[in-house]
Amino acid sequence: MSSFDHPSADAPWESVPGATPTDWELAAAAVDLAVLARVDGGPMALPAELAARIRREAPPHLPRGVMLEAGRASSARDGRPFGRTADRSWLAAAGWWTAACLAGLLVWQWFGPPRLGPPAGDSTAPPSLAELRAQLLAADPEAVTVAWKQASDDPSVVAGPAELEAAGGLGDVVWSPARQQGFMRFRGLAANDPARAQYQLWIFDAERNEAHPVDGGVFDVPAQADGDVVVRIDPRLPVGQATAFAITVERPGGVVVSSRERLPLLAALP
Protein backbone atom coordinates (compact mmCIF):
# COMPACT_ATOMS: atom_id res chain seq x y z
CA MET A 1 0.00 0.00 0.00
CA SER A 2 1.25 3.43 -0.83
CA SER A 3 1.62 5.76 2.09
CA PHE A 4 0.16 8.89 0.63
CA ASP A 5 -3.34 7.86 1.28
CA HIS A 6 -5.50 6.97 4.19
CA PRO A 7 -5.63 3.26 4.92
CA SER A 8 -9.36 3.13 4.52
CA ALA A 9 -9.42 4.86 1.17
CA ASP A 10 -9.25 3.23 -2.23
CA ALA A 11 -5.82 2.96 -3.74
CA PRO A 12 -6.18 5.36 -6.66
CA TRP A 13 -3.71 3.60 -8.97
CA GLU A 14 -5.87 0.50 -9.05
CA SER A 15 -8.27 2.21 -11.41
CA VAL A 16 -5.60 3.72 -13.63
CA PRO A 17 -4.05 1.28 -16.09
CA GLY A 18 -0.29 1.57 -16.44
CA ALA A 19 0.24 3.55 -13.24
CA THR A 20 2.38 2.11 -10.46
CA PRO A 21 2.24 2.88 -6.74
CA THR A 22 5.61 4.58 -7.05
CA ASP A 23 4.29 6.87 -9.80
CA TRP A 24 1.64 8.07 -7.40
CA GLU A 25 4.02 8.43 -4.53
CA LEU A 26 6.42 10.45 -6.62
CA ALA A 27 3.60 12.71 -7.74
CA ALA A 28 2.55 13.14 -4.13
CA ALA A 29 6.13 13.90 -3.14
CA ALA A 30 6.34 16.57 -5.84
CA VAL A 31 3.15 18.14 -4.47
CA ASP A 32 4.66 17.99 -1.00
CA LEU A 33 7.72 19.89 -2.20
CA ALA A 34 5.68 22.47 -4.08
CA VAL A 35 3.40 23.18 -1.14
CA LEU A 36 6.34 23.22 1.24
CA ALA A 37 7.84 26.10 -0.73
CA ARG A 38 4.60 28.04 -0.88
CA VAL A 39 3.21 27.49 2.59
CA ASP A 40 6.30 27.14 4.72
CA GLY A 41 8.73 29.17 2.66
CA GLY A 42 11.07 26.23 2.09
CA PRO A 43 12.89 23.81 4.34
CA MET A 44 14.18 24.59 7.81
CA ALA A 45 17.77 23.79 8.72
CA LEU A 46 18.55 20.36 10.14
CA PRO A 47 19.77 20.79 13.72
CA ALA A 48 23.56 20.40 13.76
CA GLU A 49 23.61 17.80 16.53
CA LEU A 50 21.10 15.66 14.66
CA ALA A 51 23.14 15.92 11.44
CA ALA A 52 26.22 14.78 13.36
CA ARG A 53 24.32 11.85 14.86
CA ILE A 54 23.03 10.75 11.44
CA ARG A 55 26.54 10.88 10.03
CA ARG A 56 27.93 8.91 12.98
CA GLU A 57 25.30 6.24 12.68
CA ALA A 58 25.37 5.97 8.89
CA PRO A 59 28.18 3.44 8.31
CA PRO A 60 26.36 0.18 9.14
CA HIS A 61 23.52 1.17 6.84
CA LEU A 62 25.52 2.31 3.83
CA PRO A 63 25.81 0.19 0.73
CA ARG A 64 28.79 -2.16 0.77
CA GLY A 65 32.05 -0.45 0.04
CA VAL A 66 31.14 2.85 1.66
CA MET A 67 32.92 3.34 4.97
CA LEU A 68 33.21 6.45 7.06
CA GLU A 69 35.83 7.10 9.69
CA ALA A 70 36.21 10.02 11.99
CA GLY A 71 38.72 12.40 10.51
CA ARG A 72 39.65 10.48 7.41
CA ALA A 73 37.17 8.54 5.36
CA SER A 74 38.03 5.45 3.40
CA SER A 75 36.24 3.31 0.92
CA ALA A 76 36.71 0.67 -1.68
CA ARG A 77 37.06 3.52 -4.14
CA ASP A 78 40.23 4.66 -2.39
CA GLY A 79 41.81 1.55 -3.75
CA ARG A 80 42.75 0.40 -0.28
CA PRO A 81 42.34 -3.35 -0.12
CA PHE A 82 40.18 -5.03 2.48
CA GLY A 83 42.96 -7.54 2.95
CA ARG A 84 45.41 -8.47 5.61
CA THR A 85 45.80 -4.96 6.98
CA ALA A 86 42.11 -4.76 7.62
CA ASP A 87 42.14 -8.22 9.14
CA ARG A 88 44.98 -7.33 11.48
CA SER A 89 43.30 -4.16 12.65
CA TRP A 90 40.12 -6.13 13.25
CA LEU A 91 42.03 -8.67 15.31
CA ALA A 92 43.72 -5.91 17.26
CA ALA A 93 40.36 -4.27 17.93
CA ALA A 94 38.91 -7.60 19.02
CA GLY A 95 41.82 -8.11 21.38
CA TRP A 96 41.35 -4.71 22.98
CA TRP A 97 37.63 -5.32 23.23
CA THR A 98 38.17 -8.65 24.98
CA ALA A 99 40.64 -7.07 27.39
CA ALA A 100 38.22 -4.23 28.11
CA CYS A 101 35.40 -6.69 28.79
CA LEU A 102 37.56 -8.68 31.22
CA ALA A 103 38.63 -5.52 33.00
CA GLY A 104 35.01 -4.45 33.25
CA LEU A 105 34.06 -7.83 34.68
CA LEU A 106 36.74 -7.53 37.37
CA VAL A 107 35.60 -4.04 38.29
CA TRP A 108 32.02 -5.29 38.53
CA GLN A 109 33.06 -8.16 40.80
CA TRP A 110 35.16 -5.97 43.08
CA PHE A 111 33.03 -2.90 43.35
CA GLY A 112 29.53 -4.03 42.47
CA PRO A 113 27.34 -2.51 39.76
CA PRO A 114 28.27 1.00 38.64
CA ARG A 115 26.10 3.91 39.67
CA LEU A 116 23.75 5.24 37.08
CA GLY A 117 24.12 8.75 35.69
CA PRO A 118 27.19 10.79 34.91
CA PRO A 119 29.85 10.96 37.63
CA ALA A 120 30.48 14.22 39.44
CA GLY A 121 32.38 16.63 37.27
CA ASP A 122 31.65 14.64 34.12
CA SER A 123 32.33 17.05 31.32
CA THR A 124 30.13 15.03 28.96
CA ALA A 125 26.94 15.74 30.94
CA PRO A 126 24.50 17.56 28.67
CA PRO A 127 24.17 21.27 29.39
CA SER A 128 21.04 22.48 31.13
CA LEU A 129 18.49 24.56 29.26
CA ALA A 130 19.63 27.60 31.21
CA GLU A 131 23.19 26.98 30.02
CA LEU A 132 22.01 26.49 26.44
CA ARG A 133 20.11 29.76 26.69
CA ALA A 134 23.27 31.53 27.85
CA GLN A 135 25.25 29.88 25.04
CA LEU A 136 22.76 31.06 22.45
CA LEU A 137 22.94 34.61 23.74
CA ALA A 138 26.72 34.49 23.67
CA ALA A 139 26.89 32.94 20.21
CA ASP A 140 24.38 35.12 18.40
CA PRO A 141 24.62 38.87 18.95
CA GLU A 142 21.47 39.27 16.85
CA ALA A 143 19.41 37.21 19.31
CA VAL A 144 16.67 39.32 20.89
CA THR A 145 15.50 39.25 24.50
CA VAL A 146 12.04 40.47 25.36
CA ALA A 147 10.25 40.38 28.71
CA TRP A 148 6.93 38.65 29.26
CA LYS A 149 3.97 40.85 30.03
CA GLN A 150 0.79 39.76 31.66
CA ALA A 151 -1.87 39.66 28.95
CA SER A 152 -4.83 38.81 31.13
CA ASP A 153 -5.70 38.99 34.78
CA ASP A 154 -6.00 35.31 35.62
CA PRO A 155 -4.89 34.63 39.18
CA SER A 156 -5.12 30.89 38.67
CA VAL A 157 -2.34 31.08 36.10
CA VAL A 158 -0.11 34.01 36.99
CA ALA A 159 1.12 34.94 40.46
CA GLY A 160 0.04 38.18 42.11
CA PRO A 161 1.93 41.49 41.72
CA ALA A 162 3.76 41.26 45.04
CA GLU A 163 5.02 37.78 44.32
CA LEU A 164 6.09 38.78 40.80
CA GLU A 165 7.91 41.81 42.09
CA ALA A 166 9.80 39.64 44.55
CA ALA A 167 10.64 37.18 41.78
CA GLY A 168 11.92 39.94 39.51
CA GLY A 169 9.23 39.80 36.86
CA LEU A 170 7.61 37.14 34.76
CA GLY A 171 10.71 36.12 32.85
CA ASP A 172 11.61 36.60 29.21
CA VAL A 173 12.02 35.18 25.75
CA VAL A 174 15.29 34.84 23.89
CA TRP A 175 14.95 34.33 20.14
CA SER A 176 17.60 33.94 17.47
CA PRO A 177 16.12 34.62 14.02
CA ALA A 178 19.23 33.33 12.28
CA ARG A 179 19.29 30.03 14.15
CA GLN A 180 15.51 29.68 14.49
CA GLN A 181 16.08 28.80 18.11
CA GLY A 182 15.10 30.33 21.37
CA PHE A 183 14.35 29.85 25.04
CA MET A 184 11.64 31.07 27.37
CA ARG A 185 12.14 31.74 31.07
CA PHE A 186 9.15 31.81 33.37
CA ARG A 187 8.62 33.00 36.91
CA GLY A 188 5.31 33.07 38.66
CA LEU A 189 3.54 30.94 36.07
CA ALA A 190 1.34 28.40 37.83
CA ALA A 191 2.19 24.71 37.65
CA ASN A 192 -0.15 22.82 35.35
CA ASP A 193 -1.55 19.31 35.51
CA PRO A 194 -0.59 17.91 32.06
CA ALA A 195 -3.55 15.55 32.19
CA ARG A 196 -5.92 18.51 32.33
CA ALA A 197 -4.24 21.42 30.55
CA GLN A 198 -0.97 22.48 29.01
CA TYR A 199 0.65 25.73 28.07
CA GLN A 200 1.13 26.35 24.36
CA LEU A 201 3.43 28.83 22.67
CA TRP A 202 2.43 30.80 19.58
CA ILE A 203 4.84 32.83 17.49
CA PHE A 204 3.45 35.70 15.46
CA ASP A 205 5.32 36.16 12.24
CA ALA A 206 5.17 39.34 10.16
CA GLU A 207 5.46 37.17 7.07
CA ARG A 208 2.36 35.17 7.91
CA ASN A 209 -1.28 35.95 8.43
CA GLU A 210 -1.75 37.23 11.99
CA ALA A 211 -4.75 34.95 12.37
CA HIS A 212 -2.47 31.93 12.01
CA PRO A 213 0.58 32.24 14.25
CA VAL A 214 3.20 29.50 14.18
CA ASP A 215 2.58 26.73 16.68
CA GLY A 216 5.54 26.71 19.08
CA GLY A 217 4.46 23.51 20.83
CA VAL A 218 3.15 22.69 24.28
CA PHE A 219 5.04 22.65 27.54
CA ASP A 220 4.49 22.17 31.25
CA VAL A 221 5.42 24.06 34.37
CA PRO A 222 6.26 21.50 37.05
CA ALA A 223 4.79 21.79 40.51
CA GLN A 224 8.13 21.66 42.25
CA ALA A 225 9.91 24.10 39.96
CA ASP A 226 12.83 25.62 41.79
CA GLY A 227 13.71 29.02 40.38
CA ASP A 228 13.26 29.87 36.72
CA VAL A 229 11.48 27.43 34.46
CA VAL A 230 13.33 27.37 31.14
CA VAL A 231 11.67 25.99 28.03
CA ARG A 232 13.23 25.54 24.61
CA ILE A 233 11.40 27.18 21.71
CA ASP A 234 10.93 24.64 19.00
CA PRO A 235 8.72 26.01 16.22
CA ARG A 236 7.23 23.57 13.73
CA LEU A 237 7.64 25.99 10.86
CA PRO A 238 10.28 28.54 9.93
CA VAL A 239 9.65 31.94 11.49
CA GLY A 240 10.50 34.72 9.05
CA GLN A 241 10.16 37.77 11.25
CA ALA A 242 8.89 37.17 14.76
CA THR A 243 6.77 40.00 16.09
CA ALA A 244 5.38 38.51 19.29
CA PHE A 245 5.30 35.39 21.44
CA ALA A 246 2.10 34.41 23.21
CA ILE A 247 1.30 31.72 25.75
CA THR A 248 -2.15 30.19 25.87
CA VAL A 249 -3.65 27.56 28.14
CA GLU A 250 -5.01 24.67 26.12
CA ARG A 251 -6.23 21.12 26.43
CA PRO A 252 -3.54 18.39 26.80
CA GLY A 253 -1.54 18.06 23.60
CA GLY A 254 -2.39 21.55 22.50
CA VAL A 255 -4.63 22.76 19.71
CA VAL A 256 -4.16 23.62 16.07
CA VAL A 257 -6.09 26.84 16.35
CA SER A 258 -6.34 28.57 19.69
CA SER A 259 -9.48 30.35 20.76
CA ARG A 260 -7.11 32.54 22.79
CA GLU A 261 -9.64 32.56 25.61
CA ARG A 262 -6.88 32.03 28.13
CA LEU A 263 -3.82 33.97 27.08
CA PRO A 264 -1.84 34.79 30.21
CA LEU A 265 1.46 35.98 28.75
CA LEU A 266 2.58 37.99 25.77
CA ALA A 267 6.02 39.20 24.71
CA ALA A 268 5.96 41.64 21.82
CA LEU A 269 9.16 42.52 20.01
CA PRO A 270 9.88 46.22 19.70
Binding site: M44, L46, P63, L68, S74
Partner: peptide, 21 residues
Amino acid sequence: GGDQSAVPECISRYGGLIWTL
Protein backbone atom coordinates in the same frame (compact mmCIF):
# COMPACT_ATOMS: atom_id res chain seq x y z
CA GLY B 1 28.82 3.49 -6.11
CA GLY B 2 30.77 3.59 -2.86
CA ASP B 3 31.72 7.26 -2.71
CA GLN B 4 31.80 8.07 1.00
CA SER B 5 32.26 11.78 0.47
CA ALA B 6 28.69 11.94 -0.83
CA VAL B 7 27.26 10.96 2.57
CA PRO B 8 27.85 14.24 4.42
CA GLU B 9 26.88 16.12 1.26
CA CYS B 10 23.65 14.20 1.16
CA ILE B 11 22.91 14.99 4.81
CA SER B 12 23.68 18.62 4.12
CA ARG B 13 21.59 18.82 0.95
CA TYR B 14 18.51 16.93 2.10
CA GLY B 15 18.67 17.12 5.90
CA GLY B 16 16.66 20.33 6.14
CA LEU B 17 14.01 19.06 3.77
CA ILE B 18 13.60 15.77 5.61
CA TRP B 19 13.60 17.52 8.97
CA THR B 20 10.89 19.94 7.81
CA LEU B 21 8.71 17.18 6.39
